Each structure stands twice: as structure tokens, then as C-alpha cells.
Computed example of a mutant assay.
Amino acid sequence: MSAEAPTSRLYLTTPPELVSGGVAVGAFADLLAKAIAATDIACLRITGSDAARMATIAEPLLPLAQDLGVAVLFDDADLAQKLRGDGVHLTDPALYARARRAIGTDGIVGVACPLERHTAMEVGEAGADYIQFQPSSAPEDIELIAWWTEMMTVPSVVAGRFTPESAKAFIGAGADFLAPAPTIWAETDPVAAIAALLD
């Protein structure tokens, strides 16, 4: 690992209530703009599978995020292409090759992997743009992120519910991105809660 102080950026995921209509798209867009202004956000993942609903959600969010330098990912490669997102997030490593063909070499294909080294290394070496892990704050999980940082050049995304202590531990281990659970948007002050992860 580098002797320099480790740095991480944030990877946000839209709340499920955005799809169900429990959260208004306009209100969420306002929150997102405030969060982007408040801290270092690299990526927004818009979750959901209904194409019509995704188009409605993406209409204000995608240009807002992209114009402010935030990459926008979807859960489906074809949908990402259709809506002109920056790429796709996969929850099944076996779908990587198909998604890469659909997205092309210029798009982002990120993959969520189990907490073991073999699958993550295989997908990383195949060309994934990042590997997402969902660890606990147990020492062996933090050590896995530290090992990945030292051994691999593919960026790591650490996803989960963070405390200030666990966020600090994963940043110290070299995690490239922290992806807080989408429940963070339900905090009393979600913008402050998001920004606090990097404080």
C-alpha cells in the first residue's frame, strides 16, 4: 500500500422507495444535488428493473449527476445503453462477459462478488471496472480489503451500513469507494450522514 494517506470516494445507491413512488423524484433530485455539493461522490447507481419507471427516474437524475461529474449506473446493461447511462452494476459475476459485450469497452461494468478472493480475482482480471464487496467490520473482512488494495489494481467498492468507526477502518484499508446502504437516504439529515462518511 502507498505511504500516502488513503483516500476513498462515495458510491451512492437510490432508495427503493424511488421506484415504488414513496419518494418523489424531484425531491430526491434536490437531495442528490445537495449531497454532490457537500462531499466527494463518484457514482450513482439507479436501481430497479421496470424500464418505464427507470426512464422516468433517470430523466432528471442522469443529467444532474453526469453534469456534476458523477457516473450513473443501472442494474441492467440494455437499460444502461438505452438511457445513456455510464454503465452497469452486476450482482452476478457470471453475467460479466455478456454485460461487457453490451456496454462495450468504454462503459463501466462493475461486479458484486462474494467475500472470497478467487471469484473477485477472476472477474477483475477479465476486465471489470470495479469489484464490490459487502463485508462486515470483522478484522478478517477489513484484511481482505487491505489485501485487495495491495495485490490488485481493480478498484474496490465496499458496500454496507457504516458507522464512523467502520468507515474509517475501510478507508484505512484502502477501499477506493464506500457505498452506504440506500437506507442512508432515510436519515434525519441524509446529506450530513453521507458527508460524514468521509470526515
Rank of each mutant, 00 (worst) to 15 (best):
L44S: 10
P6D: 00
T47H: 14
T7N: 13
D40R: 13
L10C: 06
L32Q: 12
V25C: 03
S8G: 05
A29K: 06
D40S: 07
L18F: 13
A37W: 00
K34S: 03
P6E: 02
R9H: 10
A24R: 09
F28G: 05
T39N: 10
I36Q: 13
P16T: 07
G48K: 01
L12N: 08
A27L: 04
A33R: 05
S8P: 08
I41C: 15
L44F: 06
P15D: 10
I46M: 05
L12A: 07
A5M: 01
S20N: 01
S20Y: 07
R9I: 05
T47K: 15
K34A: 10
G48W: 04
F28C: 04
G21P: 14
A42D: 13
T7R: 15
L10N: 05
A27Y: 07
L10Q: 02
A5K: 06
G26C: 12
T47D: 15
I41W: 12
F28H: 12
K34Y: 02
Y11D: 08
T47S: 15
I46K: 10
R9G: 07
I36N: 10
S8V: 08
R9M: 12
L18C: 11
L44C: 09
L18K: 10
S20H: 06
A5E: 06
R9L: 07
C43T: 14
G48T: 04
R45H: 15
P16Y: 06
Y11A: 01
T47L: 12
R9Y: 03
E4V: 01
A42H: 08
T7V: 14
L10I: 00
R9F: 06
A35K: 00
L44G: 07
V23C: 05
F28I: 08
R45G: 01
V23H: 04
T14F: 13
T14S: 14
F28Q: 02
G21Q: 12
L44Y: 13
V23K: 03
A24E: 11
L10Y: 00
A37H: 06
Y11I: 02
G26Y: 13
E4R: 03
A24M: 06
A24Y: 06
P16N: 03
I46H: 03
D40Y: 05
L44V: 13
C43G: 04
P6S: 01
E17I: 01
L10H: 03
E17P: 03
R9Q: 11
G22T: 14
T13V: 15
E17K: 09
I36F: 13
S20L: 07
E4N: 01
I41Y: 09
P6K: 02
K34P: 00
L32S: 09
D30K: 09
A37I: 00
P16F: 08
A24L: 08
T47M: 15
G21F: 15
Y11S: 01
V19C: 00
